[in-house]
Design a protein around this nucleic acid. Structure first.
Lengths: 202, 202
DNA sequence: CAGAGAATAGAACGATCGTGCTTTTCTGTC
DNA sequence: GACAGAAAAGCACGATCGTTCTATTCTCTG
């Protein structure tokens, strides 16, 4: 549990900020709007961060921590190799489907927003996504080393494909609100993993 | 060629607007900012559209027309069936790689922005993406009917996978600026199409 | 080349933006 | 339970937002 009152309200603010950012955007999310949604005054809220950019950075960090809790950590409980690769993708899709953030994956939404806006916020978002991709790639490598996935195709390429499916169904759901896309995504991931099983050299 | 002066400047404005929208966003793109980038006065530019929403709608339509010219039309020259499926995906990736819009695919960028903002702008964007997906799906169907692609998997699912690869490399490039992702995307598309060839039942 | 109408510019509006400064209210410690 | 410091609110600022109204400049036709 959190010590001081300040830390507690800060956490509440960041919860609201991360949720609102996926719906209305992180950049256009104004201090006034966030204060209203948090039931605080503009200046009271502002004092917690000192600047809008600091608020954005804190929001990204908060969302990253949530992503770890919702996707990375649970997948770490699956055994190394193919099961963990599957678990990572499956939890990623679950996280989009359960709408942990009301506007879908936080990093999918904000990365498009900050793509072309150089600065620390963009860097922080890119860093987080890079670490997700490299973690997925690492899991694929382990599966290849265990002989569960064909090693003729690079782990990076495989991670790209699997992530594309997860991103694809998140994006498609946000646009068309048809929940079938999540199973479509899971099927695509499963089929692709299955097709990468090495020939049974008994 | 365009008749009146008004139509010509309007076109120039929309070119600038579509380009800026992929970099700075369509929603936060202000009239003043766009006027400055177009070398016009705020009110002079504004008079062409009457409201910001009309400007946004016109920008979406303009970008849609460009997408047709850059992606759909050239692919229509490929013969029906598998070659056209490939051409659609390849031109889509090309269009991202050539940076027809400086911030990558216009519809990838704006769809995330307007995902959760109900209104005519969101609807227009969703409509355009839906028509792209259905065109791609239709091309897959034709390839299936010609016996060039296995018909055991739905055309909708196949179109989803192929589009995900194209979207995936656009997004990854915008974030990391590593041009290798485009070939990665093309390889993923090609591999997937290849894997869908029906068993040679001679 | 004149005159009508389109195209653009200028100035101003109320609202909201991010941010500073000052004041009030609340929290946790002795 | 008083008191110091943290937390929150109030208020004001210059800037920019979308939009309106009016005035000026340009374009094309007769």
């Amino acid at each position: 549990m959190l010590k001081t009152k300040g830390e507690r309200t800060r956490e509440t603010i960041l919860d609201t900020a991360a949720a609102l950012a996926t719906q209305e955007g992180l950049a256009p999310l104004s201090i006034g709007r966030l204060a209203e949604a948090s039931g605080m005054s503009k200046s009271g809220l502002f004092a917690h961060f000192g600047s809008k950019e600091e608020l954005q950075l804190a929001t990204v960090d908060h969302a990253a921590a949530m992503f770890v809790v919702e996707v990375i950590s649970p997948a770490r409980e699956a055994p190394r190799g193919l099961p963990r690769v599957w678990a990572l993708c499956d939890h990623m899709i679950d996280y989009a489907e359960r709408q942990v953030f009301p506007g879908g994956c936080f990093f999918a939404a904000t990365s498009f927003e900050f793509n072309n806006r150089p600065g620390p916020v963009r860097d922080r978002i890119a860093e987080m996504i890079a670490s997700w991709l490299s973690y997925l790639e690492h899991a694929v490598e382990q599966a290849q080393e265990a002989g569960e996935i064909d090693a003729s195709l690079g782990a990076r390429e495989i991670a790209f494909e699997l992530d594309s499916f997860a991103q694809g169904c998140n994006a498609k759901f946000q646009l068309f609100r048809d929940a079938r896309v999540f199973d479509e995504g899971r099927r695509a991931v499963r089929d692709r993993i299955e097709s990468l099983r090495p020939p049974l050299a008994a």
